[in-house]
Computed example of a mutant assay.
Amino acid sequence: MKEKVKGWLAGLIFRLIAFCTLGQISPILSACVIVEQNGKILLIDRSDGLGFTIPGGIVRYGETIEQCVLREAKEETGYEVQLVGLVGIYSALKRDPRFRAVSIAYKGVIVGGTEHGSGEGLPCWRSPEEVSGAMAFDCEMMLQDYRCGKVRLS
C-alpha cells in the first residue's frame, strides 16, 4: 500500500509542476536491467499490485544512469549486477501511467549478492510466457525487444 501511495503522490506532484511550468518540464529519467538465467528473467512482483516489473527505478540527481540501475537492482533484489549491453530507450508518452518518464533498459548478469525483497516487492524468476499480459508499464515491450535482440531507440 505504501508504494502505491508514493507512486500516486509522485504522479500528482509531477503533474502539478508540469501545470505550473506550462508543460516546460523534462520527463523523469529511469533505468532498469534485464537479467536472464536458465531461461528465466529476474523480475519484481510489485507490492502495489501493478504486476511484474524489471528491476530498476528513477535516476537520482547525483548519480549516473548506470549507477542508478546498479543501485536499484541491489536495493530491489539483493543482487549485484554487471551491465553487459543495451536493450533500448523507451519514451512513449504514456509508458508510465503515474508520470511522464523515459526509461533506459540494459542487459545484465549477476556478479554477487544474495536475493532479498524490498518495499517495492519481491524478486522472482519467471519465464516470459509466465508473465505475458501481467507486466506493469511497458516492461513487456522491453522484454520482447530483449528476447529478439532488437535495440529500441524510441
Rank of each mutant, 00 (worst) to 15 (best):
G49F: 09
R46L: 15
T114D: 08
S127W: 07
T21V: 09
G78N: 06
I34S: 00
D45P: 05
R46H: 12
S47P: 06
K4H: 13
A73E: 01
T53S: 13
C32F: 09
P27K: 02
V33R: 01
I34G: 00
T64R: 13
Y79C: 00
I41N: 00
I41T: 01
P27E: 02
L9F: 15
F99T: 06
G119L: 12
I65E: 07
S26K: 06
S91V: 14
A31Q: 07
F14A: 06
R152M: 05
L22P: 04
S118P: 15
V5E: 12
M141I: 10
E130V: 06
K2M: 10
W8D: 13
L86Y: 08
S91I: 14
I65F: 09
I54R: 01
L16K: 06
K74D: 03
V87L: 07
K94S: 15
R100Y: 07
F99S: 07
S132F: 08
I44E: 00
S91N: 15
V84M: 11
V102Q: 07
S30Q: 14
E130I: 06
S103H: 10
S103V: 13
V84W: 07
C68F: 04
E80D: 13
D138C: 14
I41G: 00
I58R: 02
G78H: 03
C139Y: 05
V84D: 12
G39T: 03
P128S: 06
L143C: 00
Q67I: 11
N38I: 08
A18P: 01
V87P: 00
G121D: 03
L12H: 13
V109L: 11
R95V: 09
W8N: 11
S118C: 13
D145P: 00
A31M: 13
L43H: 06
P128W: 01
L122V: 13
E76R: 09
M141S: 10
Y79F: 15
G121P: 04
Y79G: 00
E75R: 02
R15M: 05
S30T: 13
S26N: 09
G133I: 03
L16G: 09
K74G: 03
P27N: 03
E3I: 09
A136W: 03
K150F: 15
I65T: 15
L9Q: 11
C68N: 05
L22Y: 09
M1H: 12
Q144W: 05
K94G: 15
A73Y: 00
V33T: 04
L16W: 08
V35I: 14
V33W: 00
E66D: 12
